[in-house]
Nucleic acid binder design. Structure first.
Lengths: 111, 111
DNA sequence: TTATTATATAATGGTTTGGTTATATAACTG
DNA sequence: CAGTTATATAACCAAACCATTATATAATAA
């Protein structure tokens, strides 16, 4: 269960950004497509893409292309997956963010 | 148990530095004096002082002066204390660092 | 009081971070 | 094919980060 100190610090640093932390909180509920993140975080598409790349470089998420869309999911094989789970228990349910977008009638293109 | 997303991200960012993460890992075992940290981390005293200040500003640690020394301890009243505990479970026992210093015969002045 | 020791703060500087805009790539559509 | 849509990458920049050295403060010791 215990992991390398530096590796753990690296994961915590990644999670120490509210956008990425929220992304992980969403992904633990269900896979998400890039365009969903763009809507949810009201941030430029390249900004989202770069956050996702950091998560992917760390091996925390995987990508899965479906036609023109790319869906991201948590990589449960990552050695730090348990840490991620333990941390996410401490934040509010991020699934709400998608729901509230739907209620606003904001369409997300990938579904 | 769930806390504000931004607040949590802030704590994670603080813990996302290997020096501070290790400090917390030590403090969860026992209180430490500044000069102990200086020895352990082989880093300038101001650097240590500034890390401790960040932890203190976040309310994660408390200080307690004993004569010319200042001892730091974890602030168990902090709302994020449980998060800190949950995270520290994932790193190796940092108490070893003090023990290995003693074995090297490196004196720490505050005891 | 002066000197020493422990710690904090200030000033500085190189590196990293996290956003932006512009551009490239890949897949779909007509 | 050309045009559109989804995503990634590149270039850029301001702000934050983390260390250093220099200096200030507080307590102790002579």
């Amino acid at each position: 269960m215990e992991k390398d100190l530096e590796g753990t610090a690296g994961i915590l640093k990644l999670m120490g950004d509210k956008t990425r932390l929220s992304m992980l909180g969403l992904l633990i509920k269900h896979d998400c497509c890039v365009c969903e993140f763009v809507e949810i975080f009201n941030m430029s598409q390249p900004a989202i893409s770069q956050h996702l790349r950091k998560l992917k470089d760390a091996g925390l998420v995987k990508e899965n292309r479906k036609g023109q869309w790319i869906f991201y999911s948590l990589n449960q094989e990552n050695v730090y997956y348990q840490l991620v789970q333990d941390v996410i228990k401490h934040i509010p349910d991020q699934g709400e963010k998608l729901i509230s977008l739907e209620k606003q009638g904001l369409r997300i293109s990938c579904n």
